[in-house]
Measured scan of single mutants.
Amino acid sequence: LTVEVTLDGRRIELHGLSEEAHEILRHALERNADDKEIKKILEELRK
């Protein structure tokens, strides 16, 4: 799955996400998580 997010003013596409990762990010974006929170989530998903 692919998600497009804006971090530090740049639009980035995240490819190859699992369903779980996609859901976690989608929920964070829906509640307008800040860049710091999104980065933390991405860091966790990379593990």
Rank of each mutant, 00 (worst) to 15 (best):
H22R: 10
I41S: 00
E20Y: 12
I24C: 06
S18P: 07
H27D: 15
E20V: 10
T6N: 11
K40R: 14
D34A: 09
I12C: 10
L45F: 10
E20H: 12
L7Q: 04
A28I: 06
H22V: 15
R26T: 14
A21F: 12
E20T: 11
E37L: 08
G16D: 12
K40F: 07
L14S: 02
E37W: 06
R31A: 12
R11T: 15
K47Y: 10
T6G: 04
R26G: 05
V3C: 08
G16M: 05
I12D: 03
N32E: 09
A28M: 07
A21Y: 09
D35A: 11
A21C: 09
E43N: 11
E44H: 11
T6F: 06
G9P: 03
A21P: 01
A21Q: 14
E30M: 07
D35M: 08
E30N: 07
A33N: 04
L45Y: 05
D34Y: 04
A33V: 08
V3L: 15
D34K: 07
L45K: 01
R26Q: 14
K40N: 10
E30V: 05
H15M: 07
H22D: 08
R46P: 06
L45Q: 04
H27K: 15
N32S: 12
E23A: 12
R46I: 15
K47N: 13
H22A: 15
D35T: 10
A28T: 02
K36G: 13
L29H: 03
A28P: 00
E30D: 12
L1E: 06
V5T: 02
E23N: 12
K36W: 13
A21V: 10
S18Y: 03
L17S: 01
L45I: 15
K47T: 13
E30F: 02
G16N: 14
E4N: 05
S18G: 07
E44T: 12
L7Y: 00
L42S: 01
I41W: 02
R11L: 14
I24Y: 05
K40W: 07
L14F: 06
K36M: 14
I41K: 01
R11V: 15
E13A: 06
I24S: 09
K36H: 14
E43H: 12
H15D: 09
D35F: 07
V5C: 05
N32V: 07
E23D: 11
K39W: 12
L1W: 03
E4L: 08
E30K: 04
N32L: 12
R11K: 15
N32Y: 11
D8P: 04
L25Y: 00
L7E: 03
G9S: 03
H27M: 10
L42K: 00
A28G: 01
R10N: 14
E37C: 06
L14V: 14
K39M: 15
L14D: 02
L29T: 06
H27W: 01
E43L: 09
L17E: 01
R46E: 13
I24K: 14
E13G: 02
H15G: 09
L45H: 04
D8G: 09
E30W: 01
L42H: 01
G16H: 11
R26L: 14
I41C: 01
I38N: 00
S18F: 03
A21L: 10
H27I: 11
E44F: 10
D35Q: 11
K39T: 10
R31I: 12
D35E: 15
N32M: 13
A21H: 10
V5M: 03
E19K: 12
R46G: 15
E20D: 11
T2G: 06
L14Y: 04
R11D: 07
D34E: 09
G16L: 06
G9Q: 04
S18D: 10
V5R: 01
E44S: 12
E30R: 03
I41E: 00
V5P: 03
I41R: 01
S18E: 04
K40D: 11
L29D: 03
K39Q: 09
V3A: 08
H15E: 10
T6W: 08
L17A: 02
A33F: 08
I24D: 07
E19L: 12
E13T: 13
A21W: 15
T6I: 15
I24F: 04
L45R: 01
K47S: 13
I12R: 03
I12K: 02
R11Y: 09
L29S: 03
L29Q: 06
L7W: 00
I41D: 00
D8N: 07
R11M: 10
R10C: 15
K36T: 14
H15A: 09
E19N: 12
L45V: 08
E23G: 10
E44W: 10
E23Y: 02
A28R: 00
R46L: 15
G9M: 01
E37F: 07
A33H: 05
V3T: 06
E43I: 10
R11G: 05
H15S: 11
A21G: 08
D8T: 01
E37V: 09
I38V: 07
H27L: 13
R26E: 09
I38C: 02
K47V: 15
R10Y: 08
L29V: 09
L17V: 06
E20F: 08
E20A: 13
G9F: 00
I12N: 02
H15R: 08
E19G: 07
V3W: 04
T2M: 09
E44R: 11
R46Q: 14
K47H: 13
L7S: 05
L1Y: 10
R31H: 14
T6E: 12
E23M: 10
I12G: 02
L25I: 15
H27G: 15
R11S: 08
E30Y: 02
R31T: 12
N32H: 12
E44C: 07
R46T: 14
R46S: 13
G16I: 05
E43V: 09
D8S: 02
L1M: 13
L42E: 01
R26C: 05
E30I: 07
H22S: 13
K36Y: 13
D35P: 09
I38T: 01
H15K: 09
E13W: 03
A28C: 05
R26N: 13
I24R: 15
L42C: 04
V5S: 02
H27R: 14
D8C: 14
E44P: 01
L25N: 01
G16K: 04
E30G: 07
G9V: 02
E4G: 01
E20P: 04
G16E: 07
H22M: 13
G9L: 00
R46W: 15
V5L: 07
V3Q: 05
E44Q: 14
D35L: 07
E19F: 13
E20L: 10
L1I: 13
L7V: 14
V3K: 03
R31N: 14
R31D: 08
D35K: 05
N32F: 13
D8A: 05
V3M: 15
I12E: 06
E4K: 06
E19S: 12
S18N: 07
